[in-house]
Design a protein around this nucleic acid. Structure first.
Length: 230
DNA sequence: GCGACAG
DNA sequence: ATCTTGTCGC
């Protein structure tokens, strides 16, 4: 496991952070379909916090996209780099997530983030930001609709409805299990929305949340416990 | 002006 | 995110 330092020049204020988003947003690529579902690698990333001890841990778990078997894992720990501010989540999560990705022994393929990509007040959520910084294809899968609106999708797994910012479709409410609350999918970088949803359905053969994020979630919690223990 | 608000 | 046991249900 690697230890991260907060990058030099990392934004210190909300105003600076928003300015970074406005600049990097220009580099998002939205006109690529993305990797074909069921092929190559899919990597889940997630972060856990101990605000009390100013500690953060991130995990990246690489799955074989066809079998969902774990291929590789990477973790990183560090100090909290930014407070939680809705719309600025990336500045809290990205330094440690980048280090966890760099700790991997193999290419991550598609990266699945816990949160949003295009479904964001300035259309530049965590998944978009991570995609631009790494050049990797990324998508966001969130558990809540944030400030956006949607009509409840049909009850069957696989049905979906637009996630709307006014009249603009910024993502999709996607039912991954029969009769269970949908997840909220949006594109990050170099993936289109239909392909993103197809990936999420392949990643949810059993549970509401993608296998990638479930695995990353348990790994980063374990990494945080172990980091705080010594 | 006052909430609401990804993790 | 995180604090947290048992419990209802498939």
């Amino acid at each position: 496991m690697t230890t991260v330092r907060i990058p030099a020049g990392w934004p210190a204020t909300e105003e600076q952070a928003r300015a970074v988003q406005d600049e990097l947003r220009e580099r998002v690529v939205l006109d690529e379909p993305g990797p074909p579902p069921g092929t190559g690698h899919v990597t889940g990333v997630d972060v856990a916090y101990d605000d009390e001890r100013d500690a953060v841990a991130a995990a990246a778990v690489v799955l074989d996209a066809a079998t969902l078997a774990v291929v590789a894992e990477g973790t990183a720990v560090g100090r909290i780099s930014f407070p939680y501010v809705p719309g600025l989540l990336a500045f809290r999560e990205i330094p440690t997530v980048l280090a966890a990705l760099e700790a991997l022994p193999c290419p991550p393929g598609l990266v699945v983030c816990d949160g949003y990509g295009r479904a964001h007040p300035r259309r530049f959520g965590l998944a978009s930001h991570l995609g631009v910084l790494t050049g990797l294809p990324t998508i966001g899968v969130a558990k809540n609709p944030f400030t956006f609106t949607y009509d409840d999708p049909e009850p069957r797994r696989g049905s979906s409805s637009p996630l709307l910012a006014g009249r603009e479709e910024v993502g999709r409410a996607l039912r991954t299990r029969d009769g269970v609350k949908p997840v909220f999918v949006s594109v990050g970088h170099r993936v289109d929305l239909d392909t993103a949803c197809a990936h999420v359905l392949r990643l949810t053969p059993r549970y509401r949340l993608p296998e990638s994020t479930r695995r990353a979630d348990s790994l980063c919690r374990r990494a945080l416990r172990e980091a705080v223990a010594d």
